[in-house]
Design a protein around this nucleic acid. Structure first.
Ligand SMILES: [Zn+2]
Ligand SMILES: [Zn+2]
Ligand SMILES: [Zn+2]
Ligand SMILES: [Zn+2]
Lengths: 147, 147
DNA sequence: TGATAAATAGAAACAGTTTTCATTTAAGGA
DNA sequence: TCCTTAAATGAAAACTGTTTCTATTTATCA
């Protein structure tokens, strides 16, 4: 497990530091997306000294390396999520409890076609995210917080 | 045209002020997405005094009213775009020249199915955006700026 | 074990965005 | 047309999430 993370870091040419490994452990322990500050707070329980910029830097490196994914939130803050699913896929996010669920459906091919034929451009990336309420939050009656 | 914008503002229960009308004119004149500051700069040519917060406030109101759309950008800044297309649709954005092109394709139904059956949750909204390079930018050889 | 580049802490800076509040203006009715 | 009133605005200040800077520490590898 920890071994696992060290492998991942090596693969990205990043040194396997204790903080990076714990960052990944923190993300791996959660089934919800977290803000950099959330992650910092969890990590601080395990380090006497830990700077918030370190968290930001490492999150960005891991995101750039494709190890973690970002969540797009209406409040425009950054949120990250670690997903072990190696296949191309997207996410359903619960705007109430922040749970993330994989959605394997993707219209990638159709989008490529539209762009190639209609727009005659080139697709660099695509964003697909479903925002909603998960089963659990639906049951807790309509008690939806903001949004 | 201007009449048109006044109608739109009335429809949202917003007073038809000169600044709101000009804001819409500015957006309507562009086929690219603009930042609040871009819009402010264009609007300032037509008003002696104009505060940036006014631009932010109005953009947000118009976005909330569904009159303009936001662009999701890797740099996480706000960008807005006025689109006359009333049908449900999404956008291809050129990350180089900021051009926006409507994409009518949407897998809404499939997404609904996935969420209802697999997740047993409820879809509140979905984000679909294609980031790429438009025809014009592809031709100007591979001179892609950042991103 | 020592050399070296990479990673980190802490503090400060930053930039885009939002709030506050006094003043102005649009809208609707007398 | 003139008033009244709620809504909109400008200017300045505050905010806050994020990034930069630099001296110090640490992982890696010979
Ligand atoms: Zn939920
Ligand atoms: Zn996933
Ligand atoms: Zn459109
Ligand atoms: Zn282009």
């Amino acid at each position: 497990m920890k071994q696992d993370f060290q492998q991942i870091l090596r693969g990205l040419n990043l040194k396997s530091t204790p903080k990076r490994v714990v960052l990944l452990e923190v993300l791996d322990d959660e089934s919800v997306y977290l803000s950099p500050e959330d992650i910092w707070n969890r990590m601080k329980k395990r380090f006497r000294r830990l700077g918030l910029p370190t968290v930001y830097r490492n999150l960005e490196e891991l995101y750039a390396g494709g190890v973690i994914s970002r969540v797009i939130h209406p409040n425009r803050q950054l949120y990250y999520y670690l997903c072990r699913n190696e296949e191309h896929h997207h996410h359903f996010i619960c705007v109430s409890c922040r749970r993330v669920v994989d959605v394997s459906f993707c219209a990638e091919k159709e989008l490529q076609d539209v762009v190639r034929e209609g727009i005659q451009g080139k697709v660099l990336s695509h964003i697909l995210q479903i925002n909603g309420l998960c089963r659990h939050c639906l049951q807790k009656d309509g008690a939806v917080h903001a949004y």
